[in-house]
């Protein structure tokens, strides 16, 4: 689901927040309805765990309920919600043992001294339609995303997963626009390289059939 927030949505949401701040509890229902899925999806993509994502969603909804009156409107309400969700998800992850991240540098393209590609590139992009329907593929992809270094992972999940704009992600993470773009690009390069062996093999398995 794409979530590029336009001006009207932003204003409508902020009107709901003001109503809730003024004591209208039904406005809270609507706020919770708008954000529940976004909070859950973001948290699930970060923690990869249903119970954790459920805990985080509940915690964030409670924070919104208790702290909405402290929201000043300096940045967008949605940015505030995303930031609370990220913090709560990171708290969950901190308490767990983590697989070490793979070095991102090793998975970037390699070039010769004139800047030409050195890797042999096999084009496996044809016949990928059936990939999405395979649970196996989904697991392989989720695992690869999981192995992204933290800085790149959060940008990738917000930009490509949540469908937020570069500007929005820069606001949420308090990063410059070039920093968001560079992390997103590195994440995509990492994922392409990481997933290539699987898709190459998948292609040859299909051919044999």
């Amino acid at each position: 689901m794409s979530f590029t927030q336009n001006k009207e949505t932003k204003e409508a949401e902020e009107a709901l927040v003001r109503e809730f701040q003024a004591g209208n509890l039904d406005a809270y229902d609507k706020i919770a309805e708008i954000y529940q899925k976004k909070i859950y999806a973001l948290s699930f993509n970060l923690t990869r765990n249903q119970m954790d994502a459920q805990d985080v969603t509940q915690e964030v909804l409670l924070t919104l309920f208790k702290k909405a009156h402290t929201f000043q409107g300096k940045s967008a309400f949605s940015s505030w919600v995303y930031r609370i969700t990220l913090n709560a998800s990171y708290m969950k992850l901190r308490s767990k043992k983590k697989e070490p991240n793979v070095s991102l540098e090793d998975l970037l393209p390699s070039y010769n001294s004139s800047g030409y590609q050195q890797d042999k590139i096999q084009d496996w992009s044809e016949n990928t339609e059936s990939f999405l329907f395979a649970n196996e593929t989904r697991e392989v992809i989720q695992k690869a995303v999981d192995q992204l270094p933290e800085k790149e992972k959060v940008v990738f999940i917000l930009r490509d997963g949540e469908g937020l704009s570069t500007e929005k992600v820069s606001d949420i993470l308090e990063l410059t626009i070039p920093a968001v773009k560079s992390r997103l690009h590195r994440a995509r390069l990492f994922l392409r390289k990481k997933l290539s062996p699987y898709f190459e093999e998948y292609g040859s398995r299909r051919e044999k059939k």
Binding site: K37, Y40, F131, V145, D160, G161, R188, L195
Partner: peptide, 19 residues
């Protein structure tokens, strides 16, 4: 081609999360 495909498959996978 492979960059485009892997990016879009990853994007679709992340967006499949339902509550």
């Amino acid at each position: 081609n492979t960059f485009k495909t892997s990016t879009s498959l990853c994007r679709e996978t992340l967006r499949q999360v339902d509550v």
